[in-house]
Structure formats: C-alpha cells, structure tokens
Measured scan of single mutants.
Amino acid sequence: AFSSEQLARLKREFNENRYLTERRRQQLSSELGLNEAQIKIWFQNKRA
C-alpha cells in the first residue's frame, strides 16, 4: 500500500508524463522509498 504522500507524488508525475524513463523511475524509487517495480506497475495500472 502507498502512503497518501507517495500517491500524491505519483499522481503529479503521471500528470506531467504518462511514461517514465528508467532514470526517472530510479529517482522516484529512491525519493519515495519504493522499489522500481512498484512504481512501474502503478504507472501501468494508471494508464490502463
């Protein structure tokens, strides 16, 4: 489960760009304390 802070950040990123570069995913992973797979799957689900 994502914290409300993490979700807000993911939604902001998604609004700016529906697709993440690998580098951006790595940055978000480290900033949010999530693993890259969690972020990747969140974006895939959000696009679906």
Rank of each mutant, 00 (worst) to 15 (best):
A1D: 12
A1H: 13
A1N: 11
A1P: 12
A1K: 12
A1S: 12
F2D: 01
F2Q: 03
F2C: 04
F2I: 10
F2T: 02
F2M: 09
F2W: 07
F2Y: 07
F2L: 12
F2E: 02
S3F: 03
S3E: 03
S3Y: 03
S3K: 04
S3I: 02
S3L: 04
S3C: 05
S3T: 15
S3V: 03
S3M: 04
S3W: 03
S4E: 14
S4H: 12
S4P: 14
S4G: 10
E5L: 08
E5K: 08
E5Q: 09
E5T: 08
E5W: 11
E5Y: 10
Q6M: 06
Q6C: 05
Q6E: 03
Q6K: 04
Q6W: 04
L7T: 06
L7K: 05
L7V: 08
L7Y: 05
L7R: 06
A8R: 13
A8L: 09
A8G: 06
A8N: 09
A8T: 08
A8C: 10
A8F: 05
R9Q: 06
R9M: 07
R9V: 10
R9K: 07
R9A: 11
R9P: 00
R9N: 04
R9F: 06
L10F: 02
L10M: 04
L10H: 00
K11E: 15
K11G: 10
K11I: 15
K11M: 15
K11Q: 15
K11V: 15
K11R: 14
R12F: 10
R12L: 10
R12Q: 14
R12Y: 10
R12N: 07
R12T: 09
E13W: 04
E13Y: 05
E13Q: 03
E13H: 04
E13L: 05
F14T: 01
F14P: 01
F14C: 05
F14E: 02
F14Y: 09
F14Q: 02
F14R: 02
N15P: 01
N15C: 12
N15K: 12
N15V: 08
N15L: 11
N15R: 12
E16C: 13
E16I: 11
E16K: 14
E16T: 10
E16W: 07
E16H: 09
E16R: 11
E16L: 11
N17L: 04
N17S: 09
N17W: 05
N17K: 05
N17Q: 05
R18H: 10
R18F: 05
R18P: 15
R18D: 06
R18I: 08
R18A: 12
R18S: 11
R18C: 10
R18T: 06
Y19K: 06
Y19H: 13
Y19S: 06
Y19W: 11
Y19Q: 07
L20W: 04
L20S: 02
L20F: 03
L20H: 03
L20Y: 02
L20K: 01
L20I: 09
L20G: 02
T21I: 03
T21P: 06
T21N: 08
T21Q: 04
T21V: 03
E22Q: 13
E22K: 15
E22D: 13
E22F: 09
E22I: 12
R23S: 14
R23T: 14
R23K: 13
R23N: 13
R23L: 12
R23G: 11
R23A: 15
R23M: 12
R24K: 11
R24M: 09
R24T: 06
R24A: 07
R24D: 05
R24S: 05
R24L: 08
R25G: 11
R25P: 02
R25E: 06
R25K: 10
Q26S: 08
Q26M: 12
Q26E: 08
Q26I: 10
Q26V: 10
Q26D: 04
Q27W: 09
Q27I: 11
Q27F: 08
Q27V: 10
Q27K: 10
Q27A: 10
Q27S: 08
L28W: 01
L28C: 02
L28T: 01
L28E: 00
L28S: 00
S29P: 01
S29V: 08
S29M: 06
S29C: 07
S29Y: 03
S29E: 05
S29D: 01
S30T: 13
S30K: 14
S30Q: 14
E31T: 04
E31M: 05
E31Y: 04
E31I: 06
E31G: 02
E31S: 05
E31P: 00
L32Q: 00
L32D: 00
L32C: 03
L32S: 02
L32H: 01
G33I: 03
G33H: 06
G33N: 09
G33Q: 06
G33E: 06
G33Y: 04
G33D: 07
L34M: 07
L34V: 10
L34Y: 01
L34H: 01
L34A: 04
L34K: 02
L34P: 00
L34C: 06
N35C: 07
N35E: 14
N35Y: 06
N35F: 07
N35S: 15
N35G: 10
N35D: 14
N35M: 09
N35P: 15
E36D: 07
E36P: 11
E36G: 07
E36C: 06
E36S: 07
E36N: 04
A37K: 10
A37G: 09
A37H: 13
A37Y: 13
A37W: 15
Q38S: 08
Q38C: 11
Q38G: 03
Q38N: 05
Q38L: 14
I39Y: 01
I39L: 07
I39C: 02
I39M: 03
K40C: 14
K40M: 15
K40R: 12
K40A: 15
K40D: 15
K40P: 01
K40T: 15
I41E: 15
I41G: 08
I41Y: 10
I41P: 00
I41R: 13
I41V: 09
W42F: 07
W42H: 01
W42K: 01
W42I: 03
W42R: 01
W42N: 00
W42M: 02
F43N: 00
F43H: 00
F43T: 00
F43A: 01
F43C: 03
Q44Y: 10
Q44N: 08
Q44L: 08
Q44G: 06
Q44C: 09
Q44T: 08
Q44F: 09
N45C: 14
N45A: 10
N45D: 09
N45Y: 10
N45E: 14
N45V: 09
N45M: 13
N45I: 11
K46Y: 14
K46W: 13
K46T: 14
K46C: 13
K46S: 13
K46F: 12
K46M: 15
K46G: 06
R47V: 10
R47I: 13
R47H: 09
R47E: 08
R47K: 06
A48T: 08
A48R: 13
A48C: 12
A48L: 12
A48E: 11
